[in-house]
Design a binder for these strands. Structure first.
Length: 137
DNA sequence: GCCAACGTTGGC
DNA sequence: GCCAACGTTGGC
């Protein structure tokens, strides 16, 4: 089961709103980047993803799971892009900040560190476990 | 099909 | 608010 990381600016969609959406989940629309699209298409039912707050917070705040795989994004007039649905899994006990990630030797190769612009990213099992350990500490 | 110009994202 | 990095657009 693959792991991912998705980013959102809290001002447009925050984890608090994701929690309110609850089990029903919400569609992750608005992705307009082909690299990100490839990753969205690769997601499977039940795959888990870290929820990262960009700009305001700059930290991983929770975990979501894929509740519906890739389908067309109705907000894209040209029909080129699609989206998946995410339902909330749980918040992290303690948010893991970008600063902490950059200081962690085991996370230097995270896409978040190397290509901060990409809004949907793959996360390795090792990185996933490391972040979870940091969130529990 | 190349590449310069432009727009957007996101960390600082 | 600035600016670097990156993606996209459009002229040729």
């Amino acid at each position: 089961m693959a792991k991912w990381l998705v980013k959102s600016e809290p001002s447009s969609w925050s984890f608090a709103q994701q929690i309110e959406a609850g089990k029903a989940g919400t569609s992750w629309n608005g992705v307009r980047n082909h690299t990100a699209k490839q990753y969205l298409m690769a997601m499977a039912m039940g795959d888990e993803a870290f929820f990262y707050h960009s700009n305001d917070g700059k930290e991983i705040v929770g975990i979501v799971a894929v509740s519906r795989t890739y389908y067309p994004d109705p907000t894209d007039a040209k029909g080129k892009f699609g989206m998946v649905d995410f339902s909330v899994v749980r918040p992290l006990d303690k948010p893991v900040t970008l600063d902490a990630i950059k200081k962690e030797a085991a996370l230097q190769d995270m896409v978040l560190v190397k290509n901060s612009r990409l809004s949907v990213q793959p996360v390795t099992e090792a990185e996933w476990d490391t972040v979870l350990r940091m969130a529990a500490a």
